[in-house]
Amino acid sequence: LAALHAEGPLAGLPVTRSDARVLIFNEWEERKKSEPWLRLDMSDKAIFRRYPHLR
């Protein structure tokens, strides 16, 4: 499970980098069924690119 911001401008976004990794992994797991070539990237760089508020 990932903790998400409940309200405000960040509502629905992950609270920590660990939470972001959970979301990225879950999405990758779903997408790899139809796109088996996808690589999993959970590096800090990938997290910041996707969720800049975690910098």
Rank of each mutant, 00 (worst) to 15 (best):
W28N: 01
S34E: 10
L4K: 06
K33Q: 15
A3H: 11
L4T: 09
P9E: 11
V22S: 10
K33V: 13
L54I: 03
L10Q: 03
H5N: 05
H53N: 02
A3N: 13
M42H: 04
V22K: 14
A11W: 10
A20I: 01
K32W: 08
A11K: 14
M42G: 03
A20C: 02
E7D: 14
W37T: 12
R17F: 13
S34A: 11
K33Y: 10
L40D: 01
L23D: 02
L1T: 12
I47P: 00
K32Y: 08
F25R: 09
I24H: 02
E30T: 11
A6V: 14
M42P: 02
R17S: 13
A11H: 09
L54N: 00
D41N: 09
R21A: 09
L10I: 04
Y51G: 00
G12R: 03
E29M: 15
P9A: 12
L1K: 14
L4W: 03
W37L: 09
R21V: 07
R49F: 09
V15W: 03
P9K: 08
P52R: 03
R39A: 13
F48I: 10
R50M: 06
F48R: 06
E29K: 15
L38T: 12
F48K: 08
A20F: 07
L54T: 01
L4V: 14
N26W: 10
P52Q: 04
D44I: 15
R49T: 14
H53M: 01
R39M: 12
H53W: 04
W28Y: 04
S43T: 12
S34G: 14
E27A: 05
H5M: 07
I47K: 00
R21I: 07
T16A: 05
I24P: 00
D44N: 14
A6D: 11
A3C: 13
V22I: 13
N26S: 11
E27H: 09
G12D: 04
A20M: 02
K32I: 14
R31T: 07
E7T: 12
K33W: 11
L10Y: 12
R55G: 09
R55Y: 10
R50S: 05
L4M: 07
R49W: 11
A6I: 11
H5K: 11
R31E: 04
D41W: 06
E30G: 10
R21N: 05
F48G: 10
P52F: 02
A11V: 09
S43D: 05
D44W: 07
V22E: 08
S34W: 12
N26K: 15
W37Q: 11
V22Y: 13
D19G: 07
Y51F: 15
A3T: 15
F25T: 03
P36H: 08
L38Y: 07
M42A: 07
S43C: 05
L23C: 07
H53V: 01
G12F: 06
L40W: 03
V15P: 03
M42C: 10
K45W: 09
L40H: 02
R31Y: 04
P9L: 12
L40I: 08
E7G: 12
R39E: 15
L13D: 02
A3Q: 14
V15D: 03
D41P: 01
T16V: 01
H5Y: 14
D44M: 15
P36F: 06
R21G: 07
P52L: 02
S43H: 03
L23F: 03
S18T: 09
K45M: 14
P14F: 03
M42N: 07
R39D: 06
W37S: 13
L40N: 02
A11Q: 15
E30P: 02
D19C: 05
E7C: 11
E30I: 10
G8W: 07
D19N: 03
G12L: 07
R39I: 15
H5G: 03
G8S: 06
P14D: 01
L10D: 04
R21W: 06
A6K: 15
F25S: 05
L13H: 05
N26G: 10
V15K: 11
S34K: 14
A2D: 08
A2Q: 07
G12V: 05
I24Y: 03
K32H: 14
F25A: 08
I47G: 00
Y51P: 00
L38F: 14
S18L: 09
R49N: 13
V15H: 03
V15N: 05
P9G: 04
V22M: 11
E7V: 15
L23S: 03
K33C: 08
E35H: 12
N26F: 14
R49K: 14
L54Q: 00
D44E: 11
E27R: 04
M42R: 06
E29P: 02
V15G: 03
L1W: 13
R31P: 00
L23V: 08
P52N: 02
H5V: 06
E29I: 13
P9S: 10
E29G: 09
R17I: 13
A46V: 10
E35Y: 15
E30S: 10
K33F: 07
E30A: 13
A20S: 01
M42F: 09
A6Y: 09
P14H: 01
L1A: 15
E7A: 15
R50V: 13
A6G: 08
N26Q: 13
R50I: 08
D19M: 07
F25H: 06
T16N: 10
I24F: 03
K32F: 10
I47D: 00
L4R: 02
P14Y: 01
A3Y: 14
W28F: 12
V22Q: 14
S43Y: 01
M42Y: 06
E35W: 08
P9H: 10
L1M: 13
M42I: 11
L38A: 14
T16L: 03
E30H: 12
A20W: 01
I24D: 01
S18I: 15
R31C: 08
P36W: 06
M42V: 14
V15E: 05
E29R: 15
R49S: 14
T16S: 14
E27M: 04
T16P: 00
L13N: 03
S18H: 13
L23P: 00
A46Q: 06
H5L: 04
P52D: 03
K45Y: 12
A3V: 15
P9N: 10
A20Q: 00
P36L: 06
A6W: 12
P52G: 04
N26P: 02
T16M: 04
A46D: 05
R39H: 14
S18P: 06
A6F: 12
P14T: 00
G12A: 04
F25G: 02
R31H: 05
K33M: 11
G8Y: 06
R50E: 06
N26E: 09
E27N: 04
D44A: 10
A11S: 11
V15M: 10
L10V: 07
H53F: 02
S34F: 15
Y51H: 04
A2M: 07
F48Y: 15
L23R: 03
D19V: 04
A46T: 09
H53D: 02
S34N: 11
K33I: 13
S43E: 03
N26M: 13
D19Y: 04
E35A: 08
